[in-house]
Amino acid sequence: MHEVSLISDVIATVTQSAHERQLSKIHKVKLVIGEYTSVMPESLLFAFDLLKKEPFIESSVLEIETSSGNEFYIDYFEGE
């Protein structure tokens, strides 16, 4: 549906949380997406690569786990 704006929200949430913990680099972001959501993982991956412009997140990877329900949440991120 709106994968670019969704990923933009994900990056904003992760960025804020990383700043609060004084992390200067994000290596990985992990999402969980239920099969009963109208969200396309391929489009999220595409949007993530498109939007991770800032130096502290540009080398990070997005990992997506699909589940059987209708969850759609940020599980965790890794950084230093």
Binding site: E78, G79, E80
Partner: peptide, 15 residues
């Protein structure tokens, strides 16, 4: 050192 931060937040939490 790499740190893992659990967020567990719905992507549409703002909405």
């Amino acid at each position: 050192m790499t740190e893992r931060v659990y967020v567990k937040k719905h992507v549409l939490h703002g909405n």
